[in-house]
Computed example of a mutant assay.
Amino acid sequence: MTTTINANSHKSLIRNKVWSRLRAVALPDSRFHHDYSSFIADFEGSSAATDLLQSLPAYQNAHLIFIAPDNCLQELRYRSLTDGKKVIVTTYGIRRGFWILDPEQIHESQWQMASVLDGMENIGRHMTLADISELPTDIALMVTGTGAINLKGLRFGKGHGYFDLEWAMLYSIGKANQRTQTIAVVHECQVLDEELRGEVWDTGCDFVVTNDKVINVKDASKPSCGILWDKLEDGMLEDIEPLKELEAIKKRSRAG
């Protein structure tokens, strides 16, 4: 317990240190201004980071990509559609689950709006976990923003663990696996040379892509524990649609 408390305290100190730097380069959110505990910010240079990400074979070879609903990834969602890739994204806080943006089913004139969270639900298609499990290909790449990240690919997000949950849910249904590559898109000021022991559920990143460079991470952590139900924040099971779906699947499995 003491180790967990100390680790959480350390992460909190790191977040606060980075957030103070981020304010100089981050773009405010229309809902949350500069409250980085409520959203992952877009930043000056995110287009340059997207350029670098698009140059990676991990992106070029991927046909089905998960892209987190972070502000700094809106342009990537749009560019992925223009590159003919299918994009899976969650609603904010995962509350209404997963959606798929398929450029073969969405007219080109709507790609820009589909890449915006407010447009995604009107233009994309809602997907249950059962629907995602039936897709013909696995998810080759998962991309996220974050609050801060160290050189070993360990992220320090807002503190809710949404990307870890997204990984765990997709891993639980067999669509993400140890071959799935992970990328964090951040500003240079969010990259820290900090040592911190990760938790068993922490999903590390194979690449850290900034506005200036690409950092290759060796042996990034890829959890295989699935959902740790007793570690969920209060209210998550009630609020997050796919978690309720997974719980129902688990109960049916036990009954069978």
Score class of each variant (00 low, 15 high):
5 I>H: 15
6 N>I: 14
12 S>N: 15
19 W>Q: 08
22 L>I: 04
38 S>I: 00
39 F>A: 02
47 S>A: 12
48 A>H: 12
50 T>D: 07
52 L>A: 09
53 L>E: 09
54 Q>H: 11
60 Q>K: 15
62 A>C: 14
63 H>M: 13
64 L>I: 14
68 A>D: 10
68 A>V: 05
68 A>N: 12
68 A>Y: 02
71 N>Y: 03
73 L>Q: 04
73 L>W: 05
74 Q>I: 07
76 L>V: 09
77 R>G: 08
83 D>F: 08
84 G>N: 08
86 K>Y: 04
93 G>F: 03
95 R>G: 01
96 R>M: 08
97 G>A: 01
99 W>R: 09
99 W>D: 07
100 I>T: 05
102 D>P: 15
102 D>Y: 05
105 Q>V: 12
106 I>T: 01
111 W>M: 08
115 S>T: 14
116 V>E: 15
116 V>M: 15
120 M>L: 08
120 M>K: 09
120 M>G: 03
121 E>Q: 01
124 G>M: 11
130 A>C: 06
139 I>D: 12
140 A>V: 03
141 L>F: 04
141 L>H: 13
142 M>P: 12
146 T>S: 14
149 I>R: 02
149 I>A: 06
150 N>V: 10
153 G>Y: 13
155 R>V: 08
156 F>N: 15
156 F>P: 00
157 G>C: 08
157 G>N: 13
164 D>P: 05
164 D>A: 03
164 D>W: 04
164 D>C: 05
165 L>V: 00
165 L>W: 00
166 E>F: 00
168 A>D: 09
176 A>L: 07
176 A>V: 11
176 A>E: 06
177 N>I: 02
178 Q>S: 11
182 T>C: 13
184 A>L: 03
185 V>G: 13
186 V>C: 10
190 Q>R: 10
195 E>H: 11
195 E>D: 13
196 L>T: 03
199 E>A: 01
199 E>D: 12
200 V>F: 04
206 D>Q: 02
208 V>M: 06
209 V>D: 04
211 N>M: 02
213 K>V: 00
213 K>Y: 01
214 V>L: 12
216 N>F: 09
219 D>N: 13
219 D>F: 02
220 A>H: 06
221 S>H: 14
222 K>E: 04
223 P>V: 00
225 C>V: 12
225 C>P: 04
234 D>T: 00
235 G>W: 03
236 M>K: 13
240 I>T: 02
241 E>C: 01
241 E>Q: 11
243 L>I: 10
245 E>C: 03
246 L>V: 03
248 A>C: 05
249 I>A: 11
251 K>H: 07
252 R>P: 03
253 S>A: 09
255 A>K: 11
256 G>L: 07
